[in-house]
Nucleic acid binder design. Structure first.
Length: 682
DNA sequence: AATCTGCATGGAGGA
DNA sequence: CCTCCATGCAGATTG
């Protein structure tokens, strides 16, 4: 890592009135949602909002700092992240060279502060350090999430991250930075180690960097969410106190390490203390993130693909009781055999051993599991000897699967309801979007996804390929013109979707998404279910990113001029569909007067005066007073402002939280990705 | 004959 | 090379 001086000559902060430098590792500032600005590090992709950036910028060493232990210079991104930690948490600064903490007191020589191990010194040592930087960036995100009152920039940060980062994300061994099993650090940093590491691990060179970058932060968020949801449950030493019917073994459940061989997959232990995320709860709760599961035997070993991806909202729905805490344990995408008539659900070994009671006999024991409707099922939890190992299955699941109308490709989630410790089985219907066809063609029996799964939805999967899910979810239940317009465009424009426009609309949901790939022989199709889980993960991460981007950008979209929509009714919801893709519209502000009535305000591109408009007006990207056909008295830039300065101030305050440029950038990024994924050209 | 049961096989992916 | 796990398959059981 070079230690040449970093030249940050100016601050992007508009308030500061200076602009950023593109040199020295920093590049590109993006406007955050709040109107503040962020800057990205070329190396680690860390993004800093205004105040933090200013802090970095104004530091005497321009972002570089010398390690008090080894005297080496820390990288700008790292030090910036650490500066952020210091600012927000009073934490220390880790030297990426010697791993010691700089600036906050002495460290033991072999100590791994904050869970960071020493960077491995080998021919890829540089990359390891860089990856550590990514972790630091992830930490930064956490701190920002936990401290920014209005949740500034989280989604933008996602975008920032996904657009510009990951140059440093490289494949690395887990052992390089993870504490060994059994001594998993209990700090939040260990989680982020894992989060970042896991992402780097699975990142493949051929995967576009935006995807892996999104994954980085995605899993960082996963950790964050975990902290929110699991905090109350971590003190429960028995991961399975109440779900066991067989009393003779229930006592064993409290002995977490008596099971057979551990698998080698590592997972961080959730932090002991929950982070306060209230300020962002509303923002994060709907985000479907992979939550590293709660504690249990072998909890450190679960593959990320089994991490429960459940939103807080879903948790709440499952729980029902505000006094109960739902602890997501794991989830599994149903295979064809799982969802088949045999009634055997193969359980991931690590999950079974971690969260279900230990069984020593193949016969196993009956398990009582409650579904989301409150109905209680009893399954036989057992195993088959298999290659000197075990294969765990839940038998008798067919009635439950059928009652939930699940099929291959859908996801079942296993959670624990604390304090009673009851096992709860939830599910997510797989949206039969591109995802299903692209990554799990076999998941749909006969290749015909049901309309039910398409728009059903309590737990519709977010992790869908190429970001369509987010769009569809936004669409679902919405009559928003622009949403439907874009949706239609996406569908019609994506070349790999057989969206037959001449079909009846209800058929679209059922048949319109079939792919030729579904016509492959059954054997081949069914084989693909699990094997592409990794790809699914990557794609879902991308979807996640795109969803956020979309949310930010959606109100910039306008239907193309002079295009009349057709009304489509899907599951009792009316959608307007447009033959033409949406266009960027001018951003306006909608306000609701306390005395009643809504108003729309838009700013003239010429004189910058704000003009009142009817609420149903959609403005083109460029709009001036001359175009104000609705108020003849203010159809000229020479007309005075309708608003008093104070009113204008209030109006703009209402507008805070959205920055046109940021959104525009986001949307372009979004569209670009779609272009990559499905040859869609906006 | 259909279904159930228990185990075997082999592809996929991680170490 | 090893483990995991989706699924095949043969024998047992049931109707």
């Amino acid at each position: 890592m070079a230690s040449s001086s970093l030249s940050i000559k100016s601050c992007m902060n508009a308030t500061c009135g200076v602009s950023t430098s593109n040199s020295g590792g920093w590049r590109k500032g993006w406007a955050l949602r709040s109107g503040d600005f962020a800057i990205l590090c070329d190396n680690c992709g860390s993004a800093y909002e205004q105040s933090i950036f200013c802090e970095v910028f104004h530091s005497k060493d321009s972002g570089w700092r010398e390690c008090t232990s080894c005297s080496k210079h820390l990288h700008c991104g790292c030090i910036a992240s650490r500066s952020l930690l210091e600012l927000l948490d009073g934490g220390g600064v880790n030297c990426t060279s010697c791993s010691r903490t700089a600036g906050v007191g002495p460290m033991n020589g072999d100590e791994k502060p904050n869970g960071f191990g020493k960077p491995k010194v080998d021919n890829v040592g540089e990359l390891h350090s860089a990856s550590a930087d990514s972790q630091l960036a992830a930490e930064t995100k956490l701190m920002q999430l936990g401290n920014c009152i209005d949740g500034i920039g989280t989604r933008n940060l996602l975008q920032l991250q996904s657009d510009e980062t990951n140059g440093s994300c490289r494949k690395m061994k887990q052992e390089d930075i993870l504490p060994p099993v059994g001594e998993i650090a209990s700090t939040i940093f260990s989680n982020f180690n894992q989060a970042s590491n896991a992402s780097c691990q699975t990142a493949k060179p051929e995967i576009h960097r935006t995807v892996t970058a999104a994954k980085d932060l995605y899993e960082s968020l996963a950790q964050t969410n975990l902290s929110m949801s699991l905090g109350s449950s971590l003190g429960n030493p028995n991961p399975f106190p109440g779900g066991v019917v067989d009393e003779r073994v229930s006592s064993k459940a409290s002995s977490p390490l008596q099971q057979g061989p551990r698998s080698r997959h590592l997972l961080p232990k959730p932090p002991k203390s929950a982070l306060s995320m209230d300020a962002n709860a509303g923002m994060v709760s709907q985000i479907r993130v992979a939550r590293p599961p709660a504690e249990g035997r072998g909890r450190n070993q679960l593959l990320p693909r089994y991490w429960p991806r459940i939103t807080d909202q879903e948790l709440q729905q499952i729980s029902g009781d505000p006094n109960s805490t739902i602890v997501p344990l794991f989830e599994k995408v149903l295979s064809a055999s799982d969802a088949g008539r045999i009634g055997r659900l193969v359980l991931p070994k690590a999950c079974a051993e971690a969260y279900f009671p230990p069984i020593s006999q193949p016969e196993g024991l009956p398990l009582r599991i409650q579904d989301v409707k409150g109905k209680e099922w009893v399954f036989q939890f057992r195993f088959w000897p298999n290659n000197n190992s075990r294969m765990y299955v839940l038998e008798g699941v067919t009635p439950c699967i059928q009652s939930m109308k699940l099929q291959a490709g859908d996801t079942v989630t296993f959670s624990r309801m604390d304090p009673e410790g009851k096992l709860v089985m939830g599910f997510r219907k797989a949206s039969n979007s591109i995802a299903m066809q692209d990554t799990q063609p076999s998941a749909i029996p006969n290749g015909v996804p049901s309309s039910e799964s398409y728009f059903s939805g309590v737990f519709e999967n977010l992790p869908i390929i190429s970001g369509y899910s987010g769009l569809l979810q936004s669409l679902k239940g919405s009559t928003d013109t622009h949403l439907s317009a874009l949706s239609k465009h996406l569908h019609s424009a994506s070349g790999d979707i057989s969206w037959n426009k001449s079909e009846k609309q209800e058929d679209r949901t059922r048949d319109g998404l079939l792919l030729p790939s579904l016509m492959v022989p059954e054997r081949k199709r069914t084989r693909n279910i699990g094997s592409k889980s990794k790809r699914l993960l990557i794609d879902s991460l991308d979807a996640f990113e795109l969803k956020l981007t979309w949310e930010e950008a959606q109100d910039l979209l306008r239907p193309a001029p002079s295009v009349k929509p057709s009304i489509v009714t899907i599951e009792d919801h009316d959608f307007e569909e447009y033959e033409e893709p949406p266009v960027f519209g001018k951003r306006s502000i909608f306000i609701v007067r306390s005395i009643g009535g809504q108003e729309q305000w838009a700013q003239c591109d010429s004189c910058s005066k704000w003009r009142r408009l009817p609420v149903d007006v959609l403005l083109p990207p460029k709009w001036t007073c001359v175009d104000n056909a609705w108020d003849q008295s203010r159809c000229s830039c020479s007309a005075p402002d309708e608003l008093a300065p104070r009113e204008l101030e209030n109006l703009l305050r209402l507008n805070k939280g959205m920055n046109y440029d940021a959104c525009k950038h986001s949307l372009f990024s979004f569209c670009w990705k779609l272009t990559c994924h499905c040859s869609l050209n906006f």
